[in-house]
Structure formats: C-alpha cells, structure tokens
C-alpha cells in the first residue's frame, strides 16, 4: 500500500473514531432517559401514576403504602427557594465587586479562592453543616434540633455561590466597553454606570446563571440528606425538618427490593428531577443564545 493511501485511510479512520467519541454524549443522554423509564415503567400500570400525586409519602407500611411525592417536591422547593434567596443577592453583588471594582491583582486572588468552594465535596460540606451550622441554627432559634430546611438551604447556598458568581462575572465582563465608556463620558459616576448600564446589559446572562444555579441546587443530594432532618411532611416553615427528592432516593434506594413498587416510585422521583433540571438547562441556554452571550 502506498504511503499516501495509508495516510488517507488513517485520516478517515480517525475521523470516524472521533465522531463516535463525540456521539457518546448523545448516546448517554438517550440511555439515561431509556433506563430511568425502563426501571420506573411498571408503576404506571399498577398502582398507576395517579398515586404519585398524593400528599403523603409512606413507602413502607403494614396497612397501606403511600407514594405521593407532594411532601418531597415541597421539601425540594422550600430548600431551593430559601437557598436562592440567600445566594442570588450575595453572588451578584460579589460578582459586581470582582468584575468591576476589584484591582486586577485582587481579582487574581479572589477568583481561584472562591473556586475552591466549588471543589469541596458535598459530603464534606454536609459534614461541616452537621457539626457547625446545625448547632448554630439550633441555638440561634432555640430549637430542639438544628436539622432544618434552613440549615440545608445555607449549605446549598455555599455550593451555588461559586457557580453563580463565576457565570455572572462572565456576563458582566462581556458587556461591551463602548457602553460603559459612553455612560462615563456623559458624566455618570463609576457606580451609576455599574448599576444603570453594565448590570442591566448583563442581566440575561445573570438570569441564566441563576437558573443553572437552581438546577445544581435542586439536584444536590448529600448535604441536604445530612442536615435537613428528612421528615416527609408538607410544610413551608424554614425551621421545620424536610425531606427533598434527592435525599429520598439516596436514603431509601439502599433498602428496597429491586423491582418493587417502592423501587419504581424512587425511579419516578429520579425522572421528575431529570425533567426539571433538563428544562432549567434548556431555558438557560435559550436565554444565553438569544442575547448573544453564548461563549
């Protein structure tokens, strides 16, 4: 075989190999949907999907089992909402400081340091929450236990902060200089420019950052499992113990017989989580694309 022919064949073979590697992602996404539905499937026929709509989650019982995801959904929603209430203002203001006010040398130190927070494993944060944050909440509010929705929310907030700061900062930095300069040339102060020109211009990027942050927070498992107390009750009180969807899967999957109704119900919770995060992701990407903020 001639050298040029060999090169030609290698070239085509490599191309094929690389396309296959890239297609793996598509394959994995399809398989995730396929296998979640495969394992969850039989539940839809018996006892029927209507069972999931109830407001009681009592998967193990001598009388009648209840598989209503109401309390778990409300638990996840409460913890996520509280976490975002804390995270969003702090993160956006910190991003403004880092992107627009901090000196370059200061920025070079702040950014990697805040990135460290994203590297701390969630089980380590959960452990810190159990030993430090929970007792703090307990004494602060005079409760019997510090394992509350608020405790979980504070830890989730720690996890979302680096994500939202980093993405918001990207959005702020990508605002064209011409806009900022025009504002300054018209006599606006540095802060006026930041709050009336740069921030509004970066808003779509910040909204997308918050949505991605919500996706991350809803899907977080270990920290909430360790510090929210895990009672499956319907409540809106930040100081009550709650059980999130993720914690339910993690806590109960180890003990259910494979293929049982309970097992299938846990897979349905997984599907609900997957669908929520999937749409949050898609909408965030749409927002970024629409305003030309895609990297």
């Amino acid at each position: 075989m001639s050298r040029s022919r060999r090169l030609f064949i290698t070239d085509k073979a490599m191309r094929l190999l690389l396309v296959s590697a890239a297609s793996t992602s598509v394959l994995v996404v399809c398989l995730i949907f396929l296998f979640l539905f495969k394992e969850a499937g039989p539940f839809a026929l018996s006892p029927g999907l209507g069972k999931l709509l109830g407001s009681q989650w009592i998967p193990v019982s001598f009388q009648e089992e209840h598989f209503g995801v109401g309390p778990l959904l409300s638990g996840s929603a409460l913890v996520t909402a509280l976490a975002m209430l804390v995270t969003v203002p702090i993160s956006v203001l910190a991003a403004i400081y880092i992107a627009e006010i901090a000196r370059p040398a200061e920025r070079e130190v702040l950014k990697p340091f805040i990135e460290i927070l994203a590297s701390i494993p969630s089980v380590v944060l959960g452990f810190f929450g159990l030993l430090v944050v929970a007792p703090l909440i307990k004494t602060l509010f005079g409760l019997n236990t510090g394992l509350t929705a608020l405790t979980g929310a504070l830890l989730l907030s720690l996890m979302a902060i680096p994500t939202i700061i980093s993405l918001s900062e990207d959005a702020l930095v990508s605002v064209p200089y011409a806009l900022k300069n025009a504002s300054l040339a018209l006599g606006a102060s540095h802060l006026q420019t930041i709050f009336r020109v740069t921030l509004p211009a970066a808003l779509p990027g910040i909204v997308a950052a918050v949505m991605l942050g919500i996706g991350r927070v809803i899907g977080e498992t270990m920290a909430v499992l360790m510090v929210t107390g895990n009672s499956a009750i319907l409540t809106a009180s930040p100081l009550a113990s709650v059980r999130t969807m993720t914690a339910t899967i993690a806590a109960e999957m180890g003990e259910v017989p494979f293929g049982s109704v309970h097992y299938q119900a846990l897979f349905w919770i997984g599907i609900i989580l997957l669908v929520i995060t999937f749409f949050l992701n898609i909408i965030a990407q749409r927002v970024l694309k629409k305003y030309g903020m895609m990297k």
Binding site: S25, V29, L36, E39, G215, G219, M253, L273, I282
Partner: peptide, 21 residues
Amino acid sequence: LAIVTLAGVPSIVFGLFGLGI
C-alpha cells in the same frame, strides 16, 4: 445539546442510571 444536558443531570440521577444499566 447532549453535552449541555449531561452537565445538568443531578448526580443522584447518574446513580440511578448506573444502577439500572
């Protein structure tokens, strides 16, 4: 799109997926 979707899948859902497949 698949890569973006994969990046957003919660870790416990990966656990369920791994268990199933």
